[in-house]
Design a protein around this nucleic acid. Sequence first.
DNA 1: CTCAATGATACAAAAAATATATCACGGATC
DNA 2: GATCCGTGATATATTTTTTGTATCATTGAG
Lengths: 304, 304
Amino acid sequence: MAIDVRARVTLRTMEQFVAVAEELHFHRAAERLNMSQPPLTSAIRKLEEDIDVTLIERGNRVLGLTPAGEKFLEEARETLRQAEQAITGTKDVAAGRTGLVRLGYVGSSLYGRLPDAIRAFRLQYPKVRLELREATTAAQIAAIRAGTMDVGVVIPPLHHAEDVELDRFDSDRLCMALPKDHPLGKQGRVKLSDLSDEPFVLWPMLEGRGFHLQVIRLCANAGFVPRVEQEAYGMHAVLSLVAVGLGVSVVPESMSGFRDDRITYRPINDAGSEFELSFIYRDLSPSAASFVCHASGKEKYKVL
Amino acid sequence: MAIDVRARVTLRTMEQFVAVAEELHFHRAAERLNMSQPPLTSAIRKLEEDIDVTLIERGNRVLGLTPAGEKFLEEARETLRQAEQAITGTKDVAAGRTGLVRLGYVGSSLYGRLPDAIRAFRLQYPKVRLELREATTAAQIAAIRAGTMDVGVVIPPLHHAEDVELDRFDSDRLCMALPKDHPLGKQGRVKLSDLSDEPFVLWPMLEGRGFHLQVIRLCANAGFVPRVEQEAYGMHAVLSLVAVGLGVSVVPESMSGFRDDRITYRPINDAGSEFELSFIYRDLSPSAASFVCHASGKEKYKVL
DNA sequence: CTCAATGATACAAAAAATATATCACGGATC
DNA sequence: GATCCGTGATATATTTTTTGTATCATTGAG
């Protein structure tokens, strides 16, 4: 029976009651509701019958609310507000204005366009929560497949990852990082081949395999195999070791935004020094689509 | 336009969507809703059209919710819950199960049935808030007229108060209060006329005029005019002064529940020693009606 | 290849909401 | 005190919405 009652009392009924309760005048209320007075009168009466409670006191010519009417006015307002939120909230989600984006990124991307893209996105989509996690390209692919990450920022090429989509986001190139007191560091122009006999500091191959290979290949093209004397996890660690003179390294040019008095950066003009940063994803939630869309500047994405 | 949309999305629609979202199966959902499948299908489609958001992913033979659908499921559930509360809450108010009762009472009523009545009422109507305020009969009448009090517990008769309704609640009688070391206090039987020459402690006439007059009249019938030597506000104060020997007094018998080693109570058998405690009220809110109804044991009251 | 399951479509019937016209009542006005 | 205006109630017709019945289209399993 309770279910039956709820079925009969509609949002429209509540809207009508609120209008009458606020105006305390059937004609004015009907006008506000863009309807005529008779159906309004009967609607209110049916409402009272349905819930079996007198809500409006019909004293001669003056209307008043019973205590129950006051209560229903309050509750009906809240119900209407909630109903409206149901719709606007849903539209927000659909439009990607609300939601959660779990964003992964490779460490080096923090020195490119990504931070600015994040800042701009947060301004335009304040209700989207962003969860950021640094991870290697391989780890991001795994997380996206596992559904624990929505979007990743990685360095292509990807291997065995035909199931994830890829969108170019930023480009960068490799450059040399030299200790400032190193002979080459004082020299104006340095060629990559000049490093053939120098000890290298590099990240382990497990951390960013594709990127690692690109460095090796680049050196190979310059005619040598880099002698890796020291490995370190993370670009910052690599650079710290370069700073104290443990060796030279090849890092993304955007890392030169990371300043250290003991390090000198030198460009590499060899072909193959360029690399890209791309978004990867599989099923884009609307909010994740908003992010990729906004950051990559492309127009539309099919959302899940 | 937003208003238009809200007008089209009804509670029924939400109920239908919730059923489909929970079952992920149109036929089962329709069965649960006691309707057939085709109109359910079209209702959901119309809902999606109305808010212009895809809520249900119709993958071949398997249904799934889009992120927006998840959101709408959550919000629709909340809306339905709120709508149901609007009705049940209103019914609670109408039935007097919820609300506020501002109850006034004369001090002496605290030693009669009132405390028990309050306790029992609170057990049966836990959602009704009770505001208690001690006040004289006259003050209660004024407060009820002013609309700042719902129900009063007073000692009739009332004067110039034809506009308030009166309901007998409890009865009591007057008794003598004597200092224990007073000669009369040691005597087994005491007649009221024995007090004719004793100094009296009484409350001022302003505080409980009708009650005061009853004492005077009672003494007059016993053949004397009480010599009031000391006035004190409140029964407790009166009794305290009796306890220290400042005089004798006549107080409600129920006050003998207030024990003091220095006071002896003696019954008054004279006609006219009885008095009543009554509820007074004007417009009973449902919760106030519940209270009066419950306390006085009567069945039904017309509620405002 | 057929069958069962499932959602979509078309059309008809039922129910509900709303509009129009009118009445009934009460207080204000002259 | 008769009349009129403002207000809510009633009766009935019309439109809109919702629901039901019958049927089809697609898909995956045996």
